[in-house]
Computed example of a mutant assay.
Amino acid sequence: MTVKEFFEKFKAPMFWGNLLAMLVVIIFLCFGLKWWLASYTHHGEGIEVPNLYGMTHRVAVHRLDSIGLVVVANDSSYVEGLPAGAIIQQNPAPGMKVKSGRIIYVTINSLTMPCERIPDLIDNCSYREAEARLKSLGFELLSPKLIDGEKDWVYGIQYHGRNLVSGESVPRESELTLVIGNGSLGEEKDSEGSDNGDSDAFSSDEIDDFLEVLE
């Protein structure tokens, strides 16, 4: 086939007719695919996610089921002031538009108060340091209990009258009592030191006798 015969085929009506038919088929396929995707994914349709904060899990399930959504609790945490089992977080956020059947993941308020471990404070630090560390962990401190010992030194930690040990887990926000020294130990040492000083000192009569001997 010569080059001239090859280019003459492009002038044939059948060639252009087939090309036009193929183009029409491709256009129809594109529009058909777009319509099918819009119908399958409900394009342009959406359900607004309600605000579930503070609701119990049971109420949230009932409410979202009525509008075609699903609630799944996937985590728990603790927020003071909210009842146990109340929803404290959700994903997707309130106000977002989602498709029917979408799962709304929620975090519920813990049924029990989380615990914290007692740090190594007993016979290891002062009252001021222990107070700061325990408050930072969320504990409440009652008036300290005073015993004989070095002033403001921590000798123990009590919870409901029971002595705690380092590393023991106690519910957060519990009321603890620090057992600290009242300073009597230091006063005893001072008094003992002063008594020893008096016994070691010479009296005026002893000094006079000592001088007479030298003379």
Rank of each mutant, 00 (worst) to 15 (best):
V179L: 02
C125H: 02
S169T: 13
G183T: 00
D152P: 02
D198A: 12
G197Q: 15
F7V: 14
V71F: 01
D190P: 08
P94S: 10
E192G: 12
Q90L: 04
V106T: 05
D148N: 12
D75S: 12
P13K: 03
A38V: 15
E129L: 12
G161Q: 08
Y40C: 05
A132R: 12
I108N: 05
K99T: 05
E140F: 00
D198S: 12
S39T: 02
L178T: 03
Q158A: 10
G68V: 04
E215K: 13
D198M: 10
E150C: 01
S174D: 04
Y53Q: 13
F210V: 03
K145G: 00
G85Y: 03
D200P: 00
R102Y: 01
S169M: 11
L121K: 01
E80I: 10
P94N: 11
T41H: 14
I147R: 03
L52R: 06
P94L: 06
L176A: 04
D120P: 07
L211W: 10
H160V: 09
L29D: 06
R162V: 13
I207P: 06
S169H: 09
D123T: 13
D200S: 13
N74Q: 11
D198Q: 12
L111K: 15
V71N: 06
A132F: 00
E140Q: 14
G183M: 04
L37K: 07
Y127R: 11
V98C: 08
I180E: 06
F210S: 10
L214M: 14
R133Y: 07
E116R: 13
I88D: 02
V154A: 00
K145Q: 11
L19K: 09
I27Q: 05
G17W: 07
G54L: 04
I104C: 02
E131P: 05
D205Y: 14
F31M: 08
S126P: 04
S166R: 11
I180G: 02
D152M: 12
F31V: 09
